[in-house]
Measured scan of single mutants.
Amino acid sequence: KKYAKSKYDFVARNNSELSVLKDDILEILDDRKQWWKVRNASGDSGFVPNNILDIVRP
Rank of each mutant, 00 (worst) to 15 (best):
L29D: 03
I25S: 06
K7Y: 08
N40W: 00
R32V: 10
K5R: 06
N51V: 08
S45G: 07
N14Q: 15
G46C: 01
V11L: 08
R13H: 11
D44S: 14
V48N: 00
L29M: 10
K2W: 04
A41N: 12
L21M: 14
A12C: 05
N14A: 14
A4D: 03
A41S: 14
K33W: 08
V56Q: 14
D44P: 03
P58V: 06
G43K: 05
K33Y: 13
K22L: 03
L29N: 03
L53S: 02
D9E: 09
K7Q: 09
L21R: 13
L29K: 04
K1E: 07
K2N: 15
R57T: 14
K2S: 05
L26K: 00
L18C: 05
I25N: 03
I52W: 06
R32Q: 14
F10I: 02
G43M: 07
I55Y: 10
Y3W: 06
S16D: 12
N51T: 13
G43P: 00
K33L: 14
V48K: 00
A41H: 12
N14R: 08
A12H: 03
N50D: 14
N14F: 04
A41Q: 13
K2L: 05
V48A: 04
V48T: 02
P49M: 03
W35M: 14
D9N: 11
S19M: 04
L21H: 12
R39N: 03
R13F: 05
N40D: 10
Y3R: 03
D24E: 07
R32F: 09
V56P: 14
D31Q: 10
I52R: 03
S45N: 13
D31T: 11
Q34E: 13
V56A: 12
L53I: 15
N50E: 10
A4M: 14
D54A: 12
K5T: 06
L53G: 06
Y3G: 01
L53C: 12
D31H: 08
L53R: 00
L53H: 02
L26Q: 01
R13M: 05
K5P: 02
S42W: 05
S6E: 01
F10G: 01
D30S: 09
S16N: 15
A4R: 04
V56H: 15
V11Y: 07
V56W: 11
I55P: 13
I25Y: 12
R13G: 09
K22S: 06
K7W: 04
A12Y: 01
E17D: 08
K33Q: 14
K37T: 08
V48W: 00
F10K: 02
K22C: 08
I52E: 02
A41P: 12
W36K: 09
D30T: 06
S6G: 06
W35N: 12
D30F: 04
V48G: 00
E17S: 08
D9L: 05
N15L: 08
K37W: 08
N14V: 06
N15T: 11
D30L: 06
N40Y: 03
W35F: 10
R13E: 05
D30A: 06
D24K: 02
D44M: 14
V20W: 00
R57G: 12
I55A: 12
K7T: 09
D23S: 10
K37R: 09
D9F: 07
E27W: 04
A12K: 08
R13V: 08
I55V: 13
S6I: 08
K33R: 12
V56C: 15
N50K: 14
D44R: 12
I25M: 14
F10L: 03
I28S: 00
A4S: 10
I55W: 11
L29R: 04
V38R: 00
S16L: 08
W36F: 14
I52K: 03
K1L: 03
L29G: 01
A41I: 11
N50M: 11
R57S: 13
Y8C: 15
D9V: 05
L53K: 00
Y3A: 02
F47D: 03
I25C: 08
L21K: 15
D54E: 09
K7D: 08
D54Y: 08
I28G: 01
L26N: 01
D30Y: 06
L53P: 02
R39H: 01
R39W: 01
K7S: 07
D54R: 06
P49G: 01
E17Q: 12
L26E: 02
L26Y: 06
Y3E: 05
N14W: 04
N40H: 14
F10W: 05
S42R: 08
N14D: 05
G43D: 05
I55N: 14
Y8V: 12
R57N: 15
G46I: 02
D30G: 06
V38M: 08
P58L: 04
G43S: 06
D30R: 03
K5F: 07
S42L: 14
A4K: 03
L26S: 01
W36T: 14
D31I: 05
V56I: 14
W36R: 07
D44G: 11
R13C: 05
S45D: 09
D24H: 07
E17F: 07
Q34F: 15
I52L: 10
W36V: 13
I28M: 04
G46L: 01
N50G: 11
N51G: 11
I28W: 00
V56S: 13
F47V: 03
Y8T: 14
K2F: 07
F47R: 04
N15C: 13
D24M: 08
K2T: 06
K1I: 10
I25P: 08
L29P: 01
D24I: 01
N50T: 10
L53F: 09
L21D: 11
S45F: 06
V48E: 00
W35A: 14
D31V: 10
I28R: 02
E27K: 03
P49D: 08
R13D: 05
V56T: 15
D24R: 02
N50S: 10
D54V: 11
R57P: 15
S6W: 00
K1G: 04
Y8F: 11
R57Y: 08
G43Y: 04
V20N: 03
L18M: 09
V48I: 07
K2E: 07
G46H: 01
I25Q: 11
N40F: 02
I28H: 01
A4C: 15
G43N: 08
D23F: 13
V48Q: 01
D31M: 11
A12E: 03
E27A: 05
W36S: 14
S42C: 03
S19L: 03
W36N: 04
D54S: 12
I55H: 12
L26F: 04
S16G: 12
K5G: 02
V11M: 11
L53T: 03
L18G: 01
L18V: 07
Q34K: 11
R32D: 15
P49W: 03
G43C: 05
G46M: 01
D44K: 14
D31W: 08
L29S: 03
K33M: 13
F10A: 02
L29E: 08
K22Q: 13
K2P: 02
Y8W: 11
D44Q: 14
K33A: 11
S6M: 04
W36E: 02
S45I: 03
V20D: 00
N40R: 09
A12Q: 07
K33C: 13
R39E: 09
N15R: 12
K37M: 11
V20K: 00
F10R: 07
A4E: 04
S6Y: 00
D30V: 07
F47Q: 03
E27G: 02
S45K: 15
N15F: 08
Y8K: 15
K5I: 07
V38Q: 00
R39A: 10
L29V: 13
D23Q: 09
I55G: 11
K7R: 08
N15V: 10
D23A: 12
W36C: 11
R32G: 14
V20I: 10
D31K: 08
Y8L: 13
V20T: 10
V11G: 07
I52P: 01
R32I: 06
D44F: 09
D23K: 05
K33D: 13
R32T: 12
S19C: 07
S19Y: 03
E17H: 06
Y3F: 15
R57A: 12
G46F: 03
D23H: 15
V38W: 00
I52V: 11
V48P: 00
K7P: 00
D23E: 12
